[in-house]
Amino acid sequence: MARAVSNRRKVGYTIAAWIIGLAIFFPILWTIVTSFKTEAEAISSPPSFMFFNWTTENYTTVLERSNYFRHFWNSVVISLGSTVLGLIIAIPAAWSMAFVPAKHTKNVLMWMLSTKMLPPVGVLIPIYLIFRDVGLLDTKTGLVIVLTLINLPIIVWMLYTYFKEIPGEILEASRMDGASLRDEIIYVLTPMAVPGIASTLLLNVILAWNEAFWTLNLTAAKAAPLTAFIASYSSPEGLFYAKLSAASTMAIAPILILGWFSQKQLVRGLTFGAVK
């Protein structure tokens, strides 16, 4: 009796959840579907969901006619570069705060977070002018620098929470075993923290890949990553839905896949450990 009721409920929940889930996912699904249509079918009325001539010509066109690969490569370099650079700066800092806490450690951490709260538009103008003057506008280097600084607080913070879970005695043991500080970090701490470092890397690549304030404002044709490349489709002459869809699908696919793997870390990273 009780089982039957709960099974009926379960069916209800399942139906409701799937309807809502599919509705939320629909714009992405629709983009993917449209990317396989011809331009004519893409704007045909009424629209067709399944029964059209599936084609991959949009992908070929986007890849051939535009600089898709260059922008894709820019996205890869900028997001990975800024994350790796951030990790190199953050690992020693997080080591310090997690294993040699001082009176001000907490304040330093909080202060680092507070820099993240600075609205980008508040510092856009000086950064833009400085970059213009030193020739960093529209360069990958410039964006790597900015995105490293923007994400550094999150990287430090995430690493700190992961390092905190490693018992300090193990690092002390390595010190007793004759390890120098460098050995301690390279042979003991880093390998032990690999899962945490990987999560941090993942989340920050995602954030950097999708960053769309600095990438739009500091790049033009040359260093533009996919965010800016896609934005160029908003001009009226770029209104080809199928090709837009193909380009969009390619731009979001890598991150969608990475993102699904990192749901847990996402919560921890984006709430700075306040929700676990």
Binding site: I20, G21, L22, I24, F25, P27, I28, W30, T31, I206, W209, N210, A212, L216, L226, T227, A228, I230, A231, Y233, S234, L244, S245, S248, A251, I252, I255, L256, L258, G259, W260, Q263, L266
Partner: peptide, 18 residues
């Protein structure tokens, strides 16, 4: 869950255009 979370990973320019 995966379906619901997906939009968060779509870059802002793509979602705006779509």
């Amino acid at each position: 869950r995966i379906l619901v979370i997906a939009p968060f990973f779509v870059m802002p320019t793509v979602s705006a255009l779509v």
